[in-house]
């Protein structure tokens, strides 16, 4: 399962409780929200129709919750590399995010444990907006291979 030929592979020995995951910055524009609406076949107008969004009390169309989950899944898969696996991803959407605005996808290791053959790491993951408010909260459980296997 370990692949030393891939640069940047993360190993269990490299991970300590409290370490942060490299931040993934996203800034989806309205076109990206439309692309996601099409790719996920979910055409709720609140994600692309300015007038509809205003009538719902939002200043402009809001980023799909599921797209935010997709961003946090990418945060994890980028971090763990080819040999790692995402096993659980629990996400809560707390505040709206808007197209054209930066979203900082972040994470931190909160525990490590071994379950059978699996070396597992639990992380807090979240998204911050440009005001530093957390708009999305979540946790992830990932498998990260040991160097010694």
């Amino acid at each position: 399962m370990c692949n030393d030929t891939l640069t940047g592979q993360l190993y269990d020995e490299d991970v300590q409780v409290g370490m942060t995951i490299p931040t993934l910055e996203k800034r989806p524009d309205l076109q990206q929200l439309v692309m996601y609406a099409s790719a996920s076949e979910d055409y709720h107008e609140i994600h692309y129709d300015q007038d509809f969004a205003r009538k719902q009390g939002f200043p402009k169309p809001i980023v799909q919750g599921a797209l935010k989950s997709g961003f946090l899944a990418q945060l994890i898969t980028d971090w763990v590399g080819d040999g790692g696996r995402l096993w659980k991803l629990e996400i809560q959407y707390r505040k709206p995010d808007f197209h054209g605005e930066p979203m900082y996808c972040m994470g931190k290791v909160i525990s490590k444990y071994v379950d059978g053959d699996h070396y597992l790491v639990e992380c807090d993951v979240w998204i911050e907006n440009s005001s530093g408010e957390k708009t999305v909260f979540g946790t992830a459980i990932v498998g990260i291979p040991p160097k010694t296997s």
């Binding site: 891939l6 990206q32 692309m35 790719a39 961003f71 990418q74």
Partner: peptide, 24 residues
Amino acid sequence: RFAAAIGDPNPIYHDDHVADNSSY
């Protein structure tokens, strides 16, 4: 298309050669 909509360029979602040679 789904990976492109997320903006995730990971080749395991679109490149047969890289994906075939990965752990996946």
